[in-house]
């Protein structure tokens, strides 16, 4: 950290708190969350449901407003960062517009942000290639498989060159084989684009395989129980999952998850 003191952290949370007021009383969704994410990090948030991993991601995206603490994104408040279009967000469902072709779906953010028609074309072509969907631009979403739709939604999030990519269980609804394939592609994409990625998952192998930093969270109240800096190299073939290092990291994640549970 000392050597990198000149580079500002991309995401920094200090004593972040979020309490939802519901009809059944307040729900403490996030409690005293401290986290620093540096440029180019691939950070996974893992934990059981209700641990606040998605809520934290939504706070970074300024889709939720914390009730306490400080959160900066690119040195700005989260909401300023949102208005500056600092991040692309990928949801659990692809959420493509059924009345737009894949290319037109990817153009959606570009239209909203006022890119010229020629630039839109160029960027669509580039990101379609990034997610391996060349030639599918003219298809409608229903003509694509679930995995392809999710790749198109990643392309949509990449189209406007935000340096941060926030992904909320993007592959949660897909089967394991498709998921492995997409994980591999995502790593390749991350290496090519050098983005900072925040990734919510509840799969231990997925978190360990993808991340440089694994944030283990536990529920009631939602909090961070462990932050693991992965010792794995950035270059990761799928079979890295059989190496002792990988198994060791996975073990530590599992321990962290278990510790969060026995606290109750």
């Amino acid at each position: 950290m000392k050597t990198e003191s000149t580079t500002q952290p991309v995401i920094e949370a200090r004593q972040l708190d979020l309490t939802f007021q519901t009809n059944d009383g307040p729900i403490h969704a996030l409690k005293d969350v401290n986290l620093t994410v540096d440029k180019g990090d691939f950070v996974s948030f893992i934990g059981p449901s209700g641990c606040g991993k998605t809520t934290f991601l939504r706070c970074i995206a300024a889709l939720e407003t914390p009730t306490g603490g400080a959160l900066t994104v690119n040195g700005m408040t989260a909401d300023e960062a949102r208005r500056n279009r600092a991040y692309g967000y990928v949801f659990q469902a692809a959420g493509l517009y059924p009345w737009r072709t894949i290319a037109k779906n990817i153009k959606l953010p570009l239209e909203i942000m006022g890119y010229s028609a020629s630039e839109q074309e160029e960027r669509v072509k580039k990101v379609l290639e990034l997610v391996d969907l060349e030639g599918f631009g003219g298809k409608f979403p229903w003509q694509l498989s679930g995995g392809m739709q999710q790749r198109a939604s990643i392309a949509r999030a990449l189209a406007f060159d935000a340096d941060i990519l926030l992904m909320d269980e993007p592959f949660g609804a897909l089967d394991e084989i498709v998921r492995d394939h997409l994980n591999e592609q995502l790593l390749a994409l991350w290496a090519r684009t050098e983005k900072t990625i925040g990734f919510v998952t509840h799969s231990i192998p997925e978190a360990v395989y993808l991340s440089t930093k694994i944030v283990v969270m536990s529920p009631r109240p939602g909090r961070i129980t462990d932050v693991i800096d992965s010792p794995l190299p950035r270059e990761r073939p799928l079979d890295i999952r059989d190496t002792p290092e990988f198994i060791e990291v996975a073990h530590r994640v599992r321990e962290g998850l278990r510790a969060g549970h026995t606290d109750e």
């Binding site: 995206a61 889709l63 949102r82 208005r83 279009r85 991040y87 692309g88 967000y89 949801f91 959420g95 959606l108 953010p109 909203i112 942000m113 406007f160």
Partner: peptide
């Protein structure tokens, strides 16, 4: 939410 992330 998606449109909100685009600041639409």
């Amino acid at each position: 939410d998606l449109l909100r992330t685009y600041n639409a």
